[in-house]
Design a binder for these strands. Structure first.
Lengths: 138, 138
DNA sequence: ATCTTGACTTGGACAAAGTCCAATGTAAGC
DNA sequence: GCTTACATTGGACTTTGTCCAAGTCAAGAT
């Protein structure tokens, strides 16, 4: 935890109570919260924190590479604190639960040159969908 | 084109002027429009078509499996008329443009059994991101 | 050809998610 | 402990999408 705050301070991040609370809410979670959920959890500790501040802070954490933005469908974006381990996502089509997974190989290499259309490709994400054990039996 | 409309009619779809125009806008495109873009294009031919009708019609086409919904990020969903050929997407991080691409191999097989957490996995989608030739030079 | 009817369309209100901005507050360096 | 540049606030605004009651119309029946 304090690693995160220290890394941020080294990069010139001004450490305010609001930013600390947002970072603490995210840190070490294996669930991926929406911005509104982060706001609600942060407000438990710091009641007057503004929605805009949560959005700002999340965007900064994403820009700094400390947190990943995951947009699963047309709904709210979710924030994934596990930015330092490359991984992909497995999502339950029914309940929306997300698990981090680690497929083998590099999906980037599966795209031949003549399928790149002049793009400068920087990233490939793989999303697996299906039913989680709980939803499959329910 | 008329294939699509015929298929839909066989399934009991009531063919209205509005639905015809929406289907015609989508048909045969290799770009993937947002609902608003579809609305604008449809309105060129049928000026008074309502936004709600476009949304309704797109949802029906998706439910019938004739069109795929692609949600690229937090922005508007895009509609992909190429539902009958399996493919993946390459997205410009700046302007949001989408191209269909065809990577080699099957991403599903890259996920080992012990990384499936009891899920019944039905689908794997791969999304490549980068800058399109136009945005890379601008 | 006209009627009938249930499905379709309309437009406006509403909602969710997110952005923007001017005024105010404050962390950190001096 | 001052100062000031940077952060926060809250409310208005935007975008994307959904909902609904009232009006309209495609298509089968007569």
């Amino acid at each position: 935890m304090s690693d995160l705050l220290e890394r941020l301070r080294e990069r010139g991040w001004r450490l305010t109570a609001q930013r600390r609370v947002v970072a603490e809410v995210l840190n070490g979670q294996h669930v991926h919260y929406t911005a509104d959920e982060v706001h609600a959890l942060a407000a438990e500790r710091l009641p007057e924190i503004a929605r805009a501040t949560v959005y700002n802070t999340l965007s900064e954490l994403v820009a700094l590479g400390e947190v990943l933005e995951v947009s699963t469908d047309g709904r709210a974006k979710r924030y994934d604190p596990n930015a330092h381990h490359s991984h992909q996502h497995l999502i339950c089509s029914r309940c929306g639960m997300i698990r981090d997974v680690h497929p083998e190989g590099d999906p980037l290499s599966a795209l031949p040159e003549n399928e790149r259309f002049g793009f400068t490709i920087s990233e490939a994400t793989v999303t697996y969908r299906g039913l989680c054990p709980h939803c499959a039996t329910a």
